[in-house]
Design a protein around this nucleic acid. Sequence first.
DNA 1: CGATTTCTATGTTGGCTGACACAGGCTATA
DNA 2: TATAGCCTGTGTCAGCCAACATAGAAATCG
Lengths: 193, 193
Amino acid sequence: MNRMATRRDERTQESRRLLVAAAAELFAEKGYRQTSFVDIAGRAGISRGSIPWHFGNKLGLLEAVVDDQLQVVLAGLPPGGEEPTGDSLDQAMGFIRLPAARLFITLLAEAVEVGSPIREHYARLHAALRQAVRARVAAEALPPGTTPEAFTVLLVGAVIGVHAQWRVAPEAVDLEAVRTAILALLQAGPGRA
Amino acid sequence: MNRMATRRDERTQESRRLLVAAAAELFAEKGYRQTSFVDIAGRAGISRGSIPWHFGNKLGLLEAVVDDQLQVVLAGLPPGGEEPTGDSLDQAMGFIRLPAARLFITLLAEAVEVGSPIREHYARLHAALRQAVRARVAAEALPPGTTPEAFTVLLVGAVIGVHAQWRVAPEAVDLEAVRTAILALLQAGPGRA
DNA sequence: CGATTTCTATGTTGGCTGACACAGGCTATA
DNA sequence: TATAGCCTGTGTCAGCCAACATAGAAATCG
Protein backbone atom coordinates (compact mmCIF):
# COMPACT_ATOMS: atom_id res chain seq x y z
CA MET A 1 0.00 0.00 0.00
CA ASN A 2 1.27 3.48 -0.78
CA ARG A 3 2.17 5.90 1.92
CA MET A 4 0.28 9.09 2.46
CA ALA A 5 1.97 12.26 1.34
CA THR A 6 3.76 13.78 4.32
CA ARG A 7 4.71 17.34 5.08
CA ARG A 8 8.29 16.42 4.40
CA ASP A 9 7.43 15.30 0.91
CA GLU A 10 5.49 18.47 0.35
CA ARG A 11 8.37 20.60 1.48
CA THR A 12 10.82 18.72 -0.70
CA GLN A 13 8.64 19.01 -3.76
CA GLU A 14 7.99 22.66 -3.10
CA SER A 15 11.69 23.39 -2.77
CA ARG A 16 12.51 21.54 -5.95
CA ARG A 17 9.70 23.31 -7.74
CA LEU A 18 10.92 26.72 -6.64
CA LEU A 19 14.49 25.97 -7.63
CA VAL A 20 13.54 24.54 -11.01
CA ALA A 21 11.28 27.49 -11.74
CA ALA A 22 13.94 30.01 -10.78
CA ALA A 23 16.57 28.16 -12.77
CA ALA A 24 14.34 27.95 -15.82
CA GLU A 25 13.83 31.69 -15.76
CA LEU A 26 17.49 32.48 -15.28
CA PHE A 27 18.71 29.97 -17.83
CA ALA A 28 16.38 31.53 -20.36
CA GLU A 29 17.52 35.04 -19.40
CA LYS A 30 21.26 34.65 -19.03
CA GLY A 31 22.10 31.17 -20.21
CA TYR A 32 23.27 28.13 -18.35
CA ARG A 33 26.89 28.98 -17.72
CA GLN A 34 26.28 32.57 -16.79
CA THR A 35 23.80 31.59 -14.12
CA SER A 36 25.31 30.81 -10.73
CA PHE A 37 23.92 28.94 -7.77
CA VAL A 38 23.78 32.21 -5.89
CA ASP A 39 21.55 33.69 -8.59
CA ILE A 40 19.18 30.76 -8.53
CA ALA A 41 19.06 30.40 -4.78
CA GLY A 42 18.46 34.10 -4.38
CA ARG A 43 15.52 34.11 -6.74
CA ALA A 44 14.05 30.94 -5.27
CA GLY A 45 14.54 32.13 -1.71
CA ILE A 46 16.41 28.97 -0.75
CA SER A 47 19.98 28.52 0.36
CA ARG A 48 22.70 27.95 -2.18
CA GLY A 49 23.78 24.63 -0.69
CA SER A 50 20.40 23.09 -1.31
CA ILE A 51 20.90 23.03 -5.06
CA PRO A 52 23.58 20.34 -5.22
CA TRP A 53 21.82 18.62 -2.36
CA HIS A 54 18.64 18.27 -4.39
CA PHE A 55 20.09 17.75 -7.83
CA GLY A 56 23.57 16.36 -7.23
CA ASN A 57 25.29 18.99 -9.32
CA LYS A 58 24.53 21.81 -11.68
CA LEU A 59 23.93 19.48 -14.58
CA GLY A 60 21.39 17.62 -12.49
CA LEU A 61 19.52 20.85 -12.06
CA LEU A 62 19.62 21.48 -15.78
CA GLU A 63 18.26 18.01 -16.34
CA ALA A 64 15.38 18.71 -13.99
CA VAL A 65 14.69 21.99 -15.76
CA VAL A 66 14.70 20.39 -19.17
CA ASP A 67 12.43 17.57 -18.09
CA ASP A 68 10.08 19.99 -16.43
CA GLN A 69 9.82 22.20 -19.47
CA LEU A 70 9.31 19.23 -21.73
CA GLN A 71 6.38 18.32 -19.56
CA VAL A 72 5.06 21.83 -19.96
CA VAL A 73 5.23 21.38 -23.69
CA LEU A 74 3.49 18.04 -23.50
CA ALA A 75 0.70 19.60 -21.51
CA GLY A 76 -0.32 21.43 -24.65
CA LEU A 77 -1.16 24.96 -25.60
CA PRO A 78 -2.41 27.59 -23.19
CA PRO A 79 -6.22 27.80 -23.05
CA GLY A 80 -7.84 29.48 -25.99
CA GLY A 81 -5.42 28.25 -28.63
CA GLU A 82 -6.93 28.32 -32.08
CA GLU A 83 -6.82 25.69 -34.75
CA PRO A 84 -3.69 25.48 -36.81
CA THR A 85 -3.86 27.62 -39.91
CA GLY A 86 -0.91 26.40 -41.90
CA ASP A 87 1.40 23.54 -42.35
CA SER A 88 4.75 25.05 -43.23
CA LEU A 89 7.62 24.92 -40.83
CA ASP A 90 8.06 28.67 -41.13
CA GLN A 91 4.76 29.12 -39.44
CA ALA A 92 5.72 26.67 -36.78
CA MET A 93 8.72 28.84 -36.08
CA GLY A 94 6.42 31.54 -34.85
CA PHE A 95 5.70 29.53 -31.79
CA ILE A 96 9.27 29.53 -30.72
CA ARG A 97 8.33 32.51 -28.65
CA LEU A 98 6.61 30.20 -26.20
CA PRO A 99 8.48 30.46 -22.90
CA ALA A 100 9.40 26.82 -22.85
CA ALA A 101 10.61 27.02 -26.42
CA ARG A 102 12.63 30.12 -25.61
CA LEU A 103 14.48 28.23 -22.94
CA PHE A 104 15.44 25.42 -25.24
CA ILE A 105 16.50 27.79 -27.94
CA THR A 106 18.70 29.65 -25.49
CA LEU A 107 20.28 26.47 -24.24
CA LEU A 108 20.98 25.21 -27.74
CA ALA A 109 22.37 28.53 -28.80
CA GLU A 110 24.67 28.49 -25.82
CA ALA A 111 25.80 25.00 -26.69
CA VAL A 112 26.71 26.21 -30.12
CA GLU A 113 28.53 29.20 -28.67
CA VAL A 114 30.71 27.20 -26.34
CA GLY A 115 31.65 24.86 -29.13
CA SER A 116 29.90 21.70 -28.13
CA PRO A 117 30.12 18.90 -30.67
CA ILE A 118 26.66 19.67 -31.83
CA ARG A 119 27.05 17.86 -35.12
CA GLU A 120 27.20 14.55 -33.35
CA HIS A 121 23.66 15.06 -32.22
CA TYR A 122 22.38 16.55 -35.40
CA ALA A 123 21.16 13.35 -36.92
CA ARG A 124 19.27 12.36 -33.86
CA LEU A 125 17.59 15.71 -33.48
CA HIS A 126 16.73 15.78 -37.12
CA ALA A 127 15.15 12.37 -36.82
CA ALA A 128 13.17 13.57 -33.85
CA LEU A 129 11.88 16.49 -35.85
CA ARG A 130 10.91 14.33 -38.80
CA GLN A 131 9.09 11.97 -36.53
CA ALA A 132 7.24 14.80 -34.84
CA VAL A 133 6.08 16.70 -37.86
CA ARG A 134 5.62 13.88 -40.28
CA ALA A 135 1.88 14.04 -39.96
CA ARG A 136 1.48 17.70 -40.75
CA VAL A 137 4.70 19.33 -41.82
CA ALA A 138 7.29 18.42 -44.32
CA ALA A 139 10.73 18.59 -42.80
CA GLU A 140 12.08 19.28 -46.27
CA ALA A 141 10.50 22.72 -46.16
CA LEU A 142 13.26 23.97 -43.93
CA PRO A 143 15.46 26.73 -45.32
CA PRO A 144 18.38 24.87 -46.86
CA GLY A 145 21.08 27.50 -46.59
CA THR A 146 21.50 27.55 -42.81
CA THR A 147 24.55 26.16 -41.07
CA PRO A 148 24.19 22.84 -39.30
CA GLU A 149 24.45 24.53 -35.93
CA ALA A 150 21.80 27.11 -36.50
CA PHE A 151 19.77 24.50 -38.27
CA THR A 152 19.75 22.30 -35.22
CA VAL A 153 18.76 25.14 -33.01
CA LEU A 154 15.85 25.84 -35.26
CA LEU A 155 14.96 22.20 -35.44
CA VAL A 156 14.61 21.84 -31.73
CA GLY A 157 12.60 24.96 -31.46
CA ALA A 158 10.44 23.69 -34.25
CA VAL A 159 9.94 20.37 -32.57
CA ILE A 160 8.62 22.17 -29.60
CA GLY A 161 6.60 24.74 -31.42
CA VAL A 162 5.13 22.31 -33.89
CA HIS A 163 4.14 19.96 -31.22
CA ALA A 164 2.52 22.62 -29.10
CA GLN A 165 0.61 24.15 -31.96
CA TRP A 166 -0.60 21.15 -33.86
CA ARG A 167 -1.14 18.89 -30.91
CA VAL A 168 0.89 16.11 -32.32
CA ALA A 169 0.33 13.06 -30.21
CA PRO A 170 2.99 12.79 -27.49
CA GLU A 171 4.05 9.44 -28.85
CA ALA A 172 5.00 11.14 -32.07
CA VAL A 173 7.69 13.28 -30.45
CA ASP A 174 10.92 11.68 -29.39
CA LEU A 175 11.36 13.98 -26.45
CA GLU A 176 13.99 11.70 -25.05
CA ALA A 177 16.13 12.51 -28.04
CA VAL A 178 15.73 16.22 -27.46
CA ARG A 179 16.47 15.87 -23.79
CA THR A 180 19.56 13.77 -24.29
CA ALA A 181 20.91 16.06 -26.92
CA ILE A 182 20.54 19.22 -24.88
CA LEU A 183 22.13 17.74 -21.82
CA ALA A 184 24.99 16.25 -23.76
CA LEU A 185 25.63 19.47 -25.61
CA LEU A 186 25.94 21.63 -22.54
CA GLN A 187 27.94 19.02 -20.71
CA ALA A 188 30.50 18.57 -23.43
CA GLY A 189 31.66 22.12 -23.83
CA PRO A 190 34.69 23.45 -22.02
CA GLY A 191 33.95 26.17 -19.55
CA ARG A 192 34.18 27.45 -16.04
CA ALA A 193 32.02 24.72 -14.61
CA MET B 1 49.90 19.09 13.69
CA ASN B 2 46.65 20.32 15.16
CA ARG B 3 44.05 22.04 13.15
CA MET B 4 43.07 25.63 13.72
CA ALA B 5 39.80 26.25 15.46
CA THR B 6 37.12 26.83 12.86
CA ARG B 7 33.86 28.66 13.02
CA ARG B 8 32.11 25.33 12.99
CA ASP B 9 33.94 24.24 16.12
CA GLU B 10 33.06 27.50 17.77
CA ARG B 11 29.43 27.12 16.91
CA THR B 12 29.37 23.56 18.18
CA GLN B 13 31.00 24.46 21.44
CA GLU B 14 28.75 27.45 21.90
CA SER B 15 25.65 25.36 21.30
CA ARG B 16 26.78 22.70 23.73
CA ARG B 17 27.63 25.35 26.26
CA LEU B 18 24.21 26.98 25.98
CA LEU B 19 22.41 23.67 26.27
CA VAL B 20 24.45 22.49 29.23
CA ALA B 21 23.94 25.81 30.99
CA ALA B 22 20.20 25.79 30.38
CA ALA B 23 19.93 22.16 31.46
CA ALA B 24 21.94 22.80 34.62
CA GLU B 25 19.57 25.59 35.59
CA LEU B 26 16.44 23.60 34.87
CA PHE B 27 17.68 20.42 36.50
CA ALA B 28 18.41 22.41 39.62
CA GLU B 29 15.00 24.10 39.46
CA LYS B 30 12.69 21.28 38.51
CA GLY B 31 14.75 18.13 38.65
CA TYR B 32 15.94 15.85 35.91
CA ARG B 33 12.78 13.96 35.04
CA GLN B 34 10.51 16.96 35.19
CA THR B 35 12.65 18.82 32.68
CA SER B 36 11.83 18.14 29.05
CA PHE B 37 13.84 18.75 25.92
CA VAL B 38 11.38 21.44 24.98
CA ASP B 39 12.10 23.27 28.22
CA ILE B 40 15.85 23.10 27.73
CA ALA B 41 15.79 23.97 24.07
CA GLY B 42 13.48 26.88 24.75
CA ARG B 43 15.72 28.38 27.37
CA ALA B 44 18.87 27.80 25.34
CA GLY B 45 17.30 29.18 22.18
CA ILE B 46 18.19 26.09 20.21
CA SER B 47 15.95 23.54 18.54
CA ARG B 48 14.79 20.51 20.44
CA GLY B 49 16.32 18.03 18.03
CA SER B 50 19.80 19.33 18.70
CA ILE B 51 19.90 17.87 22.18
CA PRO B 52 20.02 14.21 21.25
CA TRP B 53 22.15 15.20 18.30
CA HIS B 54 24.80 16.67 20.57
CA PHE B 55 24.56 14.33 23.53
CA GLY B 56 23.12 11.11 22.16
CA ASN B 57 20.26 10.99 24.63
CA LYS B 58 18.97 12.70 27.71
CA LEU B 59 21.36 10.83 29.96
CA GLY B 60 24.24 12.03 27.82
CA LEU B 61 23.14 15.56 28.48
CA LEU B 62 22.99 14.89 32.19
CA GLU B 63 26.47 13.47 32.02
CA ALA B 64 27.71 16.62 30.33
CA VAL B 65 26.00 18.75 32.95
CA VAL B 66 27.48 16.78 35.81
CA ASP B 67 30.97 16.86 34.34
CA ASP B 68 30.68 20.55 33.69
CA GLN B 69 29.58 21.34 37.20
CA LEU B 70 32.27 19.15 38.67
CA GLN B 71 34.74 21.21 36.71
CA VAL B 72 33.20 24.31 38.18
CA VAL B 73 33.78 22.87 41.60
CA LEU B 74 37.34 21.95 40.75
CA ALA B 75 38.01 25.45 39.57
CA GLY B 76 37.82 26.49 43.20
CA LEU B 77 36.12 29.19 45.12
CA PRO B 78 35.11 32.53 43.69
CA PRO B 79 37.81 35.21 44.07
CA GLY B 80 38.15 36.61 47.54
CA GLY B 81 37.51 33.36 49.38
CA GLU B 82 38.94 33.45 52.86
CA GLU B 83 40.87 30.83 54.72
CA PRO B 84 38.93 27.99 56.24
CA THR B 85 37.83 28.74 59.76
CA GLY B 86 36.59 25.42 61.00
CA ASP B 87 36.95 21.74 60.44
CA SER B 88 33.59 20.23 61.26
CA LEU B 89 31.37 18.80 58.60
CA ASP B 90 28.51 20.91 59.85
CA GLN B 91 30.33 23.98 58.72
CA ALA B 92 31.03 22.39 55.39
CA MET B 93 27.33 21.90 54.99
CA GLY B 94 26.90 25.62 54.78
CA PHE B 95 28.46 25.56 51.35
CA ILE B 96 25.83 23.32 49.97
CA ARG B 97 24.16 26.51 48.89
CA LEU B 98 26.74 26.92 46.16
CA PRO B 99 24.92 26.68 42.82
CA ALA B 100 26.88 23.68 41.68
CA ALA B 101 26.27 21.95 44.97
CA ARG B 102 22.58 22.76 44.77
CA LEU B 103 22.37 20.97 41.47
CA PHE B 104 23.96 17.81 42.81
CA ILE B 105 21.79 17.87 45.88
CA THR B 106 18.69 18.19 43.75
CA LEU B 107 19.74 15.33 41.53
CA LEU B 108 20.49 13.08 44.42
CA ALA B 109 17.27 13.97 46.15
CA GLU B 110 15.41 13.11 42.98
CA ALA B 111 17.20 9.80 42.78
CA VAL B 112 16.04 9.03 46.29
CA GLU B 113 12.52 10.07 45.43
CA VAL B 114 12.16 7.83 42.40
CA GLY B 115 13.49 4.92 44.39
CA SER B 116 16.86 4.35 42.81
CA PRO B 117 18.94 1.69 44.52
CA ILE B 118 20.88 4.35 46.29
CA ARG B 119 22.20 2.04 48.99
CA GLU B 120 24.27 0.19 46.44
CA HIS B 121 26.26 3.34 45.91
CA TYR B 122 26.37 4.40 49.47
CA ALA B 123 29.64 2.74 50.31
CA ARG B 124 31.38 4.25 47.38
CA LEU B 125 30.12 7.73 48.06
CA HIS B 126 31.05 7.43 51.65
CA ALA B 127 34.54 6.39 50.70
CA ALA B 128 34.73 9.39 48.40
CA LEU B 129 33.80 11.69 51.21
CA ARG B 130 36.30 10.16 53.62
CA GLN B 131 39.01 10.48 51.03
CA ALA B 132 38.12 14.10 50.43
CA VAL B 133 37.90 15.34 53.96
CA ARG B 134 40.47 13.11 55.54
CA ALA B 135 42.98 15.92 55.71
CA ARG B 136 40.73 18.39 57.47
CA VAL B 137 37.43 16.94 58.54
CA ALA B 138 36.52 13.84 60.43
CA ALA B 139 33.82 11.97 58.60
CA GLU B 140 32.72 10.57 61.89
CA ALA B 141 31.43 14.01 62.90
CA LEU B 142 28.39 13.53 60.71
CA PRO B 143 25.05 13.47 62.45
CA PRO B 144 24.44 9.79 63.11
CA GLY B 145 20.65 9.72 63.17
CA THR B 146 19.94 10.49 59.53
CA THR B 147 18.61 7.89 57.14
CA PRO B 148 21.00 6.38 54.63
CA GLU B 149 19.30 8.16 51.76
CA ALA B 150 19.41 11.61 53.27
CA PHE B 151 22.86 10.85 54.55
CA THR B 152 24.12 10.14 51.08
CA VAL B 153 22.60 13.31 49.78
CA LEU B 154 24.34 15.24 52.46
CA LEU B 155 27.58 13.41 51.84
CA VAL B 156 27.74 14.37 48.25
CA GLY B 157 26.92 17.95 49.04
CA ALA B 158 29.57 17.88 51.67
CA VAL B 159 32.14 16.47 49.29
CA ILE B 160 31.54 19.37 47.04
CA GLY B 161 31.29 21.98 49.75
CA VAL B 162 34.29 20.77 51.63
CA HIS B 163 36.37 20.62 48.57
CA ALA B 164 35.42 24.05 47.44
CA GLN B 165 35.94 25.65 50.82
CA TRP B 166 39.13 24.04 52.00
CA ARG B 167 40.82 23.71 48.67
CA VAL B 168 41.44 20.06 49.06
CA ALA B 169 43.80 18.96 46.37
CA PRO B 170 41.82 17.68 43.37
CA GLU B 171 43.59 14.37 43.63
CA ALA B 172 42.10 13.93 47.04
CA VAL B 173 38.53 13.92 45.71
CA ASP B 174 37.27 10.90 43.91
CA LEU B 175 35.06 12.93 41.62
CA GLU B 176 34.71 9.98 39.34
CA ALA B 177 32.95 8.13 42.10
CA VAL B 178 30.55 11.00 42.60
CA ARG B 179 29.91 11.30 38.92
CA THR B 180 29.34 7.61 38.41
CA ALA B 181 27.04 7.38 41.36
CA ILE B 182 24.87 10.29 40.27
CA LEU B 183 24.49 9.04 36.75
CA ALA B 184 23.79 5.50 37.84
CA LEU B 185 21.22 6.61 40.36
CA LEU B 186 19.19 8.64 37.92
CA GLN B 187 19.53 6.05 35.23
CA ALA B 188 18.38 3.18 37.38
CA GLY B 189 15.09 4.51 38.58
CA PRO B 190 11.84 3.76 36.78
CA GLY B 191 10.15 6.75 35.27
CA ARG B 192 8.55 8.30 32.29
CA ALA B 193 11.74 8.35 30.28
C1' DC C 1 55.00 36.81 -21.26
C1' DG C 2 55.36 33.63 -16.81
C1' DA C 3 54.55 33.57 -11.85
C1' DT C 4 51.72 34.87 -8.08
C1' DT C 5 47.76 36.46 -5.93
C1' DT C 6 42.93 37.27 -5.83
C1' DC C 7 38.40 36.27 -7.06
C1' DT C 8 34.46 33.54 -8.19
C1' DA C 9 31.90 29.50 -8.47
C1' DT C 10 31.12 24.59 -7.57
C1' DG C 11 30.99 20.47 -4.75
C1' DT C 12 31.34 18.51 0.08
C1' DT C 13 30.22 18.08 4.70
C1' DG C 14 29.34 19.06 9.70
C1' DG C 15 25.77 20.92 12.25
C1' DC C 16 20.89 22.28 13.05
C1' DT C 17 15.81 21.96 12.43
C1' DG C 18 11.41 20.02 12.67
C1' DA C 19 8.41 16.10 11.12
C1' DC C 20 7.69 11.45 12.18
C1' DA C 21 7.58 6.95 14.79
C1' DC C 22 7.08 5.06 18.99
C1' DA C 23 6.57 4.19 24.07
C1' DG C 24 4.54 4.92 28.46
C1' DG C 25 1.29 7.16 31.30
C1' DC C 26 -3.30 9.27 31.91
C1' DT C 27 -8.30 9.59 31.31
C1' DA C 28 -12.81 8.14 30.01
C1' DT C 29 -16.05 4.63 29.37
C1' DA C 30 -18.13 0.24 30.00
C1' DT D 1 -10.62 -3.96 36.34
C1' DA D 2 -10.04 -4.00 31.58
C1' DT D 3 -10.02 -1.37 27.15
C1' DA D 4 -9.52 2.35 24.07
C1' DG D 5 -8.19 6.78 22.91
C1' DC D 6 -5.42 10.81 24.00
C1' DC D 7 -1.45 13.19 25.55
C1' DT D 8 3.32 14.00 26.58
C1' DG D 9 8.00 13.16 25.81
C1' DT D 10 12.15 10.82 23.69
C1' DG D 11 14.83 9.21 19.82
C1' DT D 12 15.50 9.11 14.67
C1' DC D 13 16.11 10.95 10.31
C1' DA D 14 15.27 13.48 5.90
C1' DG D 15 16.01 18.03 4.56
C1' DC D 16 18.20 22.38 4.79
C1' DC D 17 21.87 25.77 5.80
C1' DA D 18 26.34 27.67 5.66
C1' DA D 19 31.35 26.91 6.37
C1' DC D 20 35.04 24.71 4.18
C1' DA D 21 38.06 22.88 0.44
C1' DT D 22 39.23 23.33 -4.05
C1' DA D 23 39.64 24.48 -9.07
C1' DG D 24 39.79 27.53 -12.73
C1' DA D 25 39.57 32.28 -14.40
C1' DA D 26 41.05 36.87 -13.98
C1' DA D 27 43.93 40.34 -12.32
C1' DT D 28 48.37 41.82 -10.76
C1' DC D 29 53.29 41.76 -10.38
C1' DG D 30 58.11 41.03 -11.79
